Amino acid sequence: MSGPEQNKNLATGPLLKVEGLEKRFGGLLALSDYSVEIAPGELMGLIGPNGAGKTTVFNLLSGVLCPSGGSICFCGKDITGQRPDQNAFSGISRTFQNIRLFNDLSVLDNIKTAFHMHSGKGLFKTLFNLAGYKASEKEMTEKALEYLEILNLLEHRHTPAGNLPYGLMRKVEIARALAARPKLLLLDEPAAGMNPHETEELTGIINLIHGKFGLTIFLVEHDMKVIMGICERIQVINQGSVLTQGSPQEVRNNPEVIKAYLGSSTD
């Protein structure tokens, strides 16, 4: 199927390069001198205590917030200060801590909303239901059904999204993010509110889409079993600044991380 952009065939060099990023809210410095590089096809985690600045990082990368300083380079292009729709079109897709589905639309129609950005069909064809629009609509439906099949959501395709259990709503949100054909997928606490069974299933889904599409994923998560189990590299921030980064084992055994965040045990 024609899915998210395959990243591992890109030219050598980071897919995402962030340098000296800063965000101020009035007199409050929420993020200071934040930098990160993510390679094509990498699955990287971001952890830190509540209020450390993790969601601020994601809001800056996706364009929800405009940085007070620093730069964001994506696919070799400076995207600092771009709007969310511009970043989405460039290939950055995300989910949110608080699920943002169209509750009254069916699961299928929620997925199809992500395709319209790339469909190339203008308002005139859409309003008058011309042949080009009809063909595009058929193609979008077929592709949406493929994503639903991958995430085991086919049986719910006609269900209003707001009627689904919480765990399934999370899966729909991920499916919609994938349908935007991203080069970089930002997952903001996807396991939040899930029970252990749902969390285990979610972990499998993230591994599946990472392997199937070679998709670059940046993951914020509080569940240490998830983050330590699937991420190739983990960055830790505390009080708006980078504390350390490294392999899961290096992060797990870092005394500063244990003191600031993980506590005495991460099992």
Rank of each mutant, 00 (worst) to 15 (best):
L262E: 04
M1S: 14
F102L: 15
A260E: 04
S265R: 01
L101I: 10
T266E: 05
Q235S: 10
S62P: 02
F128P: 00
L151I: 06
N7K: 13
I217Y: 06
Q249Y: 05
G70S: 03
Y261M: 04
T95N: 05
R24A: 07
G45Q: 10
L186F: 03
A135M: 08
K212P: 06
G69E: 03
D104W: 08
G51K: 07
I258K: 12
P165I: 11
G45H: 08
E232N: 12
I206G: 05
E5V: 15
R83G: 00
G91V: 02
T266L: 02
D85A: 10
H118V: 00
G26M: 06
A175F: 09
K212W: 01
G263I: 04
Q249T: 05
G20S: 13
V257W: 06
K8M: 15
E250Y: 02
P255C: 01
E221G: 08
K171S: 06
I217G: 03
L186R: 03
N110G: 03
K143I: 09
C75M: 12
M140Q: 12
L168V: 10
L60I: 06
R252P: 02
L130R: 13
L178I: 08
L178N: 10
E149I: 00
G211W: 07
N98L: 14
P84Y: 08
G48F: 10
Y166F: 13
V220R: 05
S241Q: 14
F218I: 03
V107D: 11
E22K: 08
L105C: 10
R83M: 09
L153H: 04
F89D: 10
T141M: 11
L130T: 15
F102V: 13
S106T: 11
L15V: 09
T203A: 09
G162M: 11
R24F: 14
I205G: 03
Q245C: 00
K225Q: 11
L243P: 00
S90H: 13
E200R: 13
E200W: 08
H158A: 13
F102H: 14
E198M: 09
G214M: 09
D85Q: 13
D78K: 07
P165D: 10
S71N: 08
P182I: 02
G132K: 04
N152T: 11
E146G: 13
G229S: 02
N50F: 07
H197F: 11
M140E: 12
A175V: 09
K77S: 08
T244M: 14
L65M: 06
A11M: 15
H118M: 02
F124K: 15
E146T: 04
V220F: 01
I72R: 04
I230H: 07
Q97N: 07
V107G: 09
T203H: 04
T56E: 06
D85N: 12
A175W: 12
G48K: 11
V18C: 00
Y34T: 05
A131P: 11
A180C: 11
Q239P: 00
L154G: 08
S68P: 06
G167L: 03
L185P: 05
